[in-house]
Amino acid sequence: MRVRAAPCKYFPDVETVLLARHARQIGEHLDQLAEVRGQADEPVGRPEAVLEAFAPVSHASRGHRDTEVAAFLHKDRHVSEARQQLHGMIRDLAAEGVRTGDLRNDIAPASSRATRLWAWTS
């Protein structure tokens, strides 16, 4: 029988600690993207600023995608929720750009957004 010590009184096991840390890290990334979005002076520059801020985060995560720990962490709901938040942020920025006339409106926003995110995360 293998006995595992609880990491502390707030977390029952190591997996819970890892999930909590990963969720916090993802939250920090989303906060950073929101800050970058708010700092861009012109609406036309906001999508580019957010995607440029997202690129190093996405690139840094490539190195651990194929590990067992990464597989465990990335199937948790906080990852899909964060992805939805990111997509929503990009969708809203694209819609704002179309309203101001800074972005094209002849391509469906969902299609162009998905293409940009796919290109950045591939």
Rank of each mutant, 00 (worst) to 15 (best):
D76S: 14
H59V: 06
R99V: 15
R99H: 13
R91M: 14
G101S: 07
N105L: 13
V79S: 10
R99W: 12
A55P: 00
H59P: 00
S80P: 12
N105V: 06
R99I: 12
A60F: 03
G97R: 03
A60M: 03
L73C: 05
M89P: 09
R62G: 06
I107A: 02
V79E: 14
R91P: 01
V57G: 06
G97T: 07
S58V: 14
I107Y: 12
F72Y: 09
L86S: 05
M89H: 12
L73I: 14
L73F: 09
T100I: 04
R77K: 15
A71P: 05
G101N: 10
L73Q: 10
S58A: 15
F72P: 06
V69E: 07
Q84A: 13
A94G: 02
L73R: 12
A55D: 13
A55N: 01
F72R: 15
V57L: 15
I90N: 04
V79G: 08
F72H: 09
H87M: 11
R91G: 06
D102Q: 13
N105C: 12
A60R: 05
S58T: 08
G101F: 05
A71R: 07
H87D: 11
L103Q: 09
N105H: 11
L103T: 07
H74I: 07
L93N: 13
R65H: 00
R62A: 02
A95V: 09
P56F: 05
A55K: 07
V69I: 07
V69H: 06
R77N: 15
K75T: 07
L86H: 07
I107F: 11
L86I: 06
H64I: 06
L93M: 13
L93D: 07
L86K: 04
F54H: 04
G97V: 06
A55F: 12
S61I: 02
K75Y: 12
V79W: 12
R77A: 15
D102L: 10
D106C: 03
A55W: 14
L93C: 06
F72M: 10
R62W: 14
L93T: 13
E96T: 15
A70P: 00
H87P: 00
V69N: 05
D92Q: 10
S80F: 09
P56V: 02
A71L: 12
T100Q: 11
I107W: 08
R91Q: 10
E96M: 13
N105P: 10
D76E: 15
M89A: 09
R62C: 01
I107E: 08
T67A: 00
R91D: 13
H59Q: 05
V79Y: 12
E81G: 00
R91L: 11
T67L: 06
D66K: 02
M89T: 01
H59R: 14
A95M: 11
A70F: 01
T100G: 04
H78N: 06
A94F: 02
G88Y: 08
A82I: 03
V69Q: 01
R83N: 11
V69S: 04
P56W: 00
D102P: 08
D102T: 15
P56N: 08
A82P: 05
R77T: 13
G101P: 08
D102N: 12
G101D: 05
G63I: 09
T67P: 08
Q84W: 03
T67G: 13
